[in-house]
Amino acid sequence: MGKSLQTVEILAPGQNLNAYMQVVNSFSILTAEEEKELGENLYYREDLEAARRLVMAHLRFVVHIAKSYAGYGLSQGDLIQEGNVGLMKAVKRFNPEKGVRLVSFAVHWIKAEIHEFILRNWRIVKVATTKAQRKLFFNLRGQKKRLAWLTNSEAEAVAADLNVDVKNVREMETRLSAFDAAFDAGADEDDETAYKAPANYLEDRRYDPSVMLENADWTENSVAGLESALELLDDRSRDILQQRWLSEDKSTLHDLAGKYGVSAERIRQLEKNAMKKMRVSMEA
């Protein structure tokens, strides 16, 4: 199979990463002159073949970066694929007139896509949402590879390096040390272990006397307010609302129009005005 056919699947590494890496490494590295020429063809002429060659020549660089994130417990193939997305975004935005090599420009985009993928998939609950938390997550994660719980001096040093409070460092350290737990007991768990599920520790307030009394009072007050508001309406308006909203066999606008000898639009207007009067009465 020639390279032209291989490149159809090259951006989506499968389970055979060794074969993928072998193909990636078979593409020659571009010289500065070749890269500038391809970059100009893409930037000024929107040459898609130039874009393809720029991407293919830098796929090995994505693999190199993705390997540095192997300690997060995520698929290496997925990390590479996300990095490839970042590479393609970088190629699309690459300006050869800036005098910077594509590899230097693309590293930000590649890492950004990998970081986003890790944060989405590392835990069920997202561990970092703000920019400061993300920076702290990846820096502290690197520290935790060689350290147990940070001492006070180590936490202070990390906080000083990243320009954050020690409190933020401790909070992120706790998040890194946590693990996902199922809310409900698994179907295969027996009675001796199922009780540990968090769902079993929620308070059931459905039969709490205070809650039941509160709900009963709310219902009674609502019904009383509705009845009082209906009494303020004229007979026709009251009947329209009862037929349209309070009857089990509800009437249509056309049904009521025939009953009162007016248009359906007039019934709609009467209904709207009656609802407005009731709302004012019940909110008073």
Rank of each mutant, 00 (worst) to 15 (best):
E220Q: 12
N95A: 01
M212A: 06
K126N: 11
M88H: 02
K67G: 10
S281E: 15
I80A: 03
V223G: 00
W245K: 00
L150F: 02
L42W: 05
G39M: 00
D47E: 07
L48R: 15
A187M: 10
V8G: 05
A284P: 03
A32P: 00
A159C: 04
I110W: 01
Q6P: 05
K277H: 09
A106L: 02
S75R: 03
R236I: 02
L54C: 11
L54P: 13
Q243R: 05
D191V: 13
R93L: 09
V63W: 14
G71M: 09
G225T: 07
V91K: 02
K36N: 03
H115I: 09
A178F: 05
E46P: 00
E40K: 01
Y44R: 04
E37S: 09
L162A: 11
R268I: 01
L140I: 04
A66P: 13
W122I: 06
F94M: 04
E34T: 01
D255S: 12
W218M: 13
S281L: 08
L256C: 03
R244N: 01
K36R: 09
E248C: 01
F27L: 04
A90S: 12
F117C: 11
I80D: 07
D190K: 04
Q81I: 03
K250M: 13
M212H: 00
V91Q: 03
A112K: 06
V62C: 15
I10M: 07
R123V: 12
K67T: 12
A185E: 08
K196S: 08
V23G: 00
K145W: 14
